[in-house]
Every structure is written in structure tokens, then in C-alpha cells.
Design a protein around this nucleic acid. Structure first.
Length: 531
RNA sequence: GCGGGUGUAGCUCAGUGGUAGAGCGUCACGUUGCCAACGUGAAUGUCGACGGUUCGAAUCCGUUCACCCGCUCCA
């Protein structure tokens, strides 16, 4: 992976944002080659999804329209969607080690996934619940010291155990509840703070539960008050739902139909990691496909399979691409009752042997439209009226939601091909459609009229394709540079060109060469670049 | 947020208290006859940042930032 990051930087695919100031965690810039690659990806998506989508499950053409919404919207959108409120999870921070834990999951985590809690339980006699003070003391000074250094019982065993003793002897019906005993051993100063909850990691005390949102906040207007607080969108989907009625009213679409959007979204991730894979600012390519609930299964399967095929078609054809159906219990709240959710995943070098998500295909039911219908007060006006069926209903939604940056990263990882036999030691095997530069135009040597012919060809081609002209240094060096940029073809003008009007085509992947007429170069490229 | 690692030219790295270096790359000129050839020359550094110790710091100490690995988190 480090080699890929190094090549991205060296050749100008991806730079760290604001690098000259030391960078900023979770933000990345695309360089001259990277912007072409990402643009190719997004344009291919738009072409294949909005302008000319594959036929639907019945063979009929799909109806798709585009949309481009703002990043900042009325904050009520995020209340309706649940991003403000239920998803602003109450989090508690450990005062000792700084660890964050979800308040509502604390006791589950302690019981199921906590080293010191597990170990401490062994010290209680099974069944009886009796408190064995010397035994707990021994635990506190031995094991406990290592795995729960900040637990009150470990820091100050005598005092803590004396509190525990008063609790137990004061009750007739000991054994007492496990949870309460644990809170006692986590509490050092009973009178001042009451019983404490322990940190699953170190045993230290947790502070108050506070809502913790992944959304970036800003203010629309000059004053920085709660009145004008706004959020940077954490997903593009809600802009589509909020405009559902506008699109239906203005574009004559009929169910089933889809609305597509490409755009930036922002999430204040706790830990941005793995190059651009988890960034705080990223770009999504989302479709909300509106259907009647009776057809959810059919459309879900259609989108899952056609989206998978699409990623294959742009070069992620190997075993590194996989389709994973979610288990019921990992589904998002809105998708529990739906036809299913699946991820299209790619085996990135940093996730291997596991996979990382490229695109999620989810049946969101009618959750979002219902939420907006209720919160906006528009209620039934957000329903769709089906003239043929004479039925008014909230459409269900199949949502294929892809990450553009993750897609570009997968393309980079997939293309990266070490090859010790060639001068560059590595080449980027992009699908020609995705390649940032489609062709290099080179005079074999920089004299004898070759540069003039090459330059003429270059000027003809550059109007249609991103191509590069290079006459400097020897031909091998120029080929090597094109290998690292992932340019699939190089056209070289040599002595023979001047005699018979043919050029050599050098193929990136095979290193083989063929001769074609100089007048056929444009047609050659057009054919190779076709979807 | 925790633990471990890294940070010197575009890249790979050397330099362990005393004048900041090498190779590769980049650029210019010459040469060139199909895969980073050769010759000559040139540009390029707040030694990640801030502070401290010292006559003197890339080097020692503290803090901080960024990246990598492992936790945690990822609706």
C-alpha cells in the first residue's frame, strides 16, 4: 500500500490536503492525473446510470434523471432523516484514557467484549455471589493492575472494598445485582459523585453522556448562534428525497424511476484512516430508485447485480471484487423490513485478506419519504399518485450508493502492477476508459521532421482525448513515464512514417507494437475507449 | 482517544553536538534510430512544527502536527 501511496504522490494522482502547512487529517487533494481518473469514473457512472442505463429487469428502458443539490440544507432535513437526534449517539468519554464509548451499549460491551470485566467475574464465586475480599484484593494487585489500571478497585483497593462491604452487609438478600457490584468496584469516592460506570478499556470513570454527531457544523449568517446552525450534508441522499415532489411535478417521470446525484458529503470521522478510504470530505454517487413496494425484491436484485456488473466493466474484474449480502442483524434501522442490503466490496491492500465497501445497495423502504412527509407537514402531498393503478402511496426506494473516492482508490489499487522486467518496475493497468491519459504521441527522435508530424497528430487528437506529446529524451524513458501514468497506448512517429504514413502503436500491457496508418489513429482510439 | 513506529532535496536514504550530503528523478544544451542509454551544466532543503538545554542542535529534552500498524469507532 505504501508503494501505491508513493506512486500517487510522485506522479500526481493524490496529494495530502494543505500539505505545505503540515497537512490535515482526513482530507485529500487530487493532482493532475488523479482528477482525470476520478472524473472518468464519475462521467462513466453518469453516462451508464443517468444518460444511458442498462435495460430494466423486464427489458424496458430505465427512466433516470439527475439532480444536483446543495451541501448545506435546512437543518430540519437532518432532523427528519434522523441524523440529528437518534443518530447523535450519546457517547461517554473516559476521564482517564479518553476512550469514547456509546452510553447505550456500555453494559453490553462490558459483558461481551471487555478483558478486565471478564477476568474480574472469575473472582466471584459462581452462583453464590459472595464477596471474597482477600481474593479481590489479590486480583486488584495482580491481574487487575495490568488490564484495568484505572479501575477504582485497582487504584485504591482498601477504600473501594470497604464501600462494597457496606453495600453487601447492609442488604438482606445478597447476592446483589452484578451490575451494581461492578459499579461499586469502579467507584472511589462514593459520597461526592455517586456510583461510577467503568471504562471498558482501562476501568477509569466515564463522564456524562453527551450527544456525539458525525456531522460538521457551521452557521448560515454572521452570528454564531444556535438559531442559524447548519450542517454539511453527511450524505447526498436526503437532497433527493427533499426534492422528490419537485422532480415528479416537473419531469413527467413515472414509477419506477430513479434520481441520481454526484456530490460531496462530509463526516467527522473519529479516525480517518487508510489513505482516501475513510476521509472526512468525500464524494458520493447515489441513486434513489423509486418503486412500488410490491416490486421491491425484483428491483433490489436488479440493482445489486447491475451495479456489481458495472464495477467489473470499468476494470475491477478480478477476484478482488465481491458482493456481500448483509445479515439481518447488521441492517440499518430503516432497512430491517426490506428486501435486503448488500455491499459491493473490494479487497484493498490495507483490508486484505478482508474487503472494504465500495458501494452499498439498500432497500430503504418508504422510511425517508414518510419522515419528510411528517416533519415537513406536507403529509400525503409527498405521496405518489399512480394513475394507472389509481393508487396513492409512498414509493419504496432502492438505493445504490457508491463512493467516488473509494472507487478511484480501488481503480488505483487494481491498476498497480509491479513488473521487474520493465524500466519503470511498475505500471498502472487502467481500463482504457478510466486512464487519465489515453495516449502518448512521440517522435522517435527529435529531428528529421518527426517532431513536426507528431505535433500535428497531437493537435488533431487533443480536441477529443486527453493525450500527451513528448519529444524529450530517449524513447524508452518516455514509455516508462507513460507506464506509471497508466497510459494504454503510445503512438510513435519514426523514419518509416515519413515514407508510408504509418505509425507504431505501443501497447502498455503487452509491450507489443503494431503499425497503423496515421489517419487511422483517431478511429483506433475511439474503438478502444468504447465502454 | 490509547499503544507502537516513522518524519533530512520530488523519491530512496546517509549524516548521533561543530560548514547539510549521495544516488535516482527533474530542468537546459548536445546526442539519439523502440523501452528510465550517454556527455556537460543547473535548480531544489524553514532537517515536519513550536519551545527548551548549549558558545553551538538535523543530532539531546519537552510539546505538537502528519502519516503507517494494532486497538476503538465507522448510524
Amino acid at each position: 500500500m505504501e508503494a501505491i501511496v508513493a506512486l500517487c504522490r510522485r506522479r500526481g494522482f493524490i496529494f495530502q490536503s494543505s500539505e505545505i502547512y503540515g497537512g490535515i487529517n482526513g482530507f485529500w487533494d487530487y493532482g493532475p492525473l488523479g482528477v482525470e481518473l476520478k472524473r472518468n469514473l464519475k462521467e462513466a457512472w453518469w453516462q451508464d446510470v443517468v444518460r444511458c442505463p442498462a435495460p430494466g429487469p423486464t427489458g424496458d428502458p430505465l427512466e433516470m434523471v439527475g439532480l444536483d443539490c446543495t451541501i448545506i440544507m435546512n437543518p430540519k432535513v437532518w432532523v427528519a432523516s434522523g441524523h440529528v437526534g437518534t443518530f447523535a449517539d450519546p457517547m461517554r468519554k473516559c476521564k482517564r484514557c479518553g476512550h469514547f464509548v456509546r452510553a447505550d451499549h456500555l453494559w453490553d460491551i462490558l459483558a461481551q467484549d471487555c478483558r478486565w470485566f471478564d477476568s474480574l467475574l472469575q473472582e466471584f464465586t459462581p452462583g453464590s455471589g459472595e464477596i471474597d475480599t482477600p481474593r479481590l484484593m489479590k486480583w486488584a494487585r495482580g491481574k487487575g493492575k495490568k488490564i484495568a489500571p484505572n479501575l477504582a478497585l485497582v487504584r485504591n483497593p482498601e477504600v473501594t472494598l470497604s464501600w462494597l462491604a457496606t453495600r453487601v452487609t447492609g442488604q438482606d438478600d445478597a447476592p446483589s445485582e452484578l451490575q451494581e457490584i461492578v459499579r461499586y468496584v469502579a467507584t472511589e469516592q462514593l459520597q461526592r459523585d455517586g456510583l461510577q460506570d467503568p471504562c471498558p478499556l482501562c476501568g477509569g470513570e466515564l463522564d456524562e453522556a453527551r450527544p456525539f454527531t458525525l456531522m460538521f457544523e457551521s452557521h448560515a449568517g454572521l452570528s454564531q448562534s444556535d438559531d442559524n446552525k447548519v450542517y454539511l450534508r453527511p450524505e447526498t441522499a436526503q437532497g433527493i428525497f427533499a426534492n422528490f415532489r419537485n422532480v415528479v411535478d416537473t419531469s413527467r417521470v413515472k414509477i419506477p424511476f430513479g434520481i441520481a446525484q454526484v456530490g460531496k458529503a462530509f463526516r467527522n470521522e473519529v479516525t480517518p484512516r487508510n489513505f482516501t478510504f475513510r476521509s472526512r470530505e468525500f464524494e458520493q454517487m447515489e441513486i434513489e430508485f423509486f418503486i412500488h413496494s410490491d416490486e421491491a425484491d425484483t428491483w433490489y436484485r436488479y440493482w445489486r447485480d447491475s451495479r456489481f456488473a458495472w464495477w467489473q466493466s470499468i476494470g475491477l474484474a478480478g477476484e478482488n471484487l465481491t458482493l456481500r449480502e448483509h445479515d439481518r442483524d447488521e441492517l440499518a434501522h430503516y432497512a430491517k423490513e426490506g428486501a435486503g442490503t448488500s455491499d459491493i466490496e473490494y479487497r484493498f491492500p490495507f483490508t486484505a485478506p478482508g474487503f472494504g465497501e465500495l458501494e452499498g445497495v439498500a432497500h430503504r423502504t418508504d422510511y425517508d419519504l414518510r419522515q419528510h412527509a411528517e416533519h415537513s407537514g406536507l403529509r400525503d402531498k409527498l405521496k405518489y399518485f399512480d394513475q394507472q393503478k389509481n393508487e396513492k402511496y409512498f414509493p419504496h426506494v432502492i438505493e445504490p450508493s457508491a463512493g467516488a473516492d473509494r472507487g478511484a482508490l480501488a481503480l488505483l489499487c487494481e491498476a498497480y502492477t509491479p513488473d521487474e522486467s520493465r524500466p519503470s518496475k511498475v505500471y498502472m493497468k487502467f481500463h482504457p476508459r478510466m486512464a487519465p491519459i489515453k495516449a502518448g504521441i512521440f517522435p522517435l527522435v527529435n529531428k528529421d521532421g518527426m517532431p513536426e508530424v507528431a505535433s500535428k497528430l497531437y493537435n488533431e487528437l487533443r480536441g477529443q482525448y486527453p493525450v500527451q506529446f513528448d519529444a524529450k529524451q530517449n524513447i524508452g524513458k518516455r514509455y516508462a513515464r507513460m507506464d506509471e501514468a497508466g497510459t494504454p497506448y503510445c503512438f510513435t512517429i519514426d523514419g518509416q512514417t515519413l515514407e508510408d504514413q504509418t505509425v507504431t502503436v505501443r501497447h502498455r500491457d503487452t509491450l507489443s507494437q503494431e503499425r497503423i496508418g496515421i489517419d487511422r489513429v483517431a478511429a483506433f482510439l475511439a474503438e478502444k475507449l468504447r465502454g
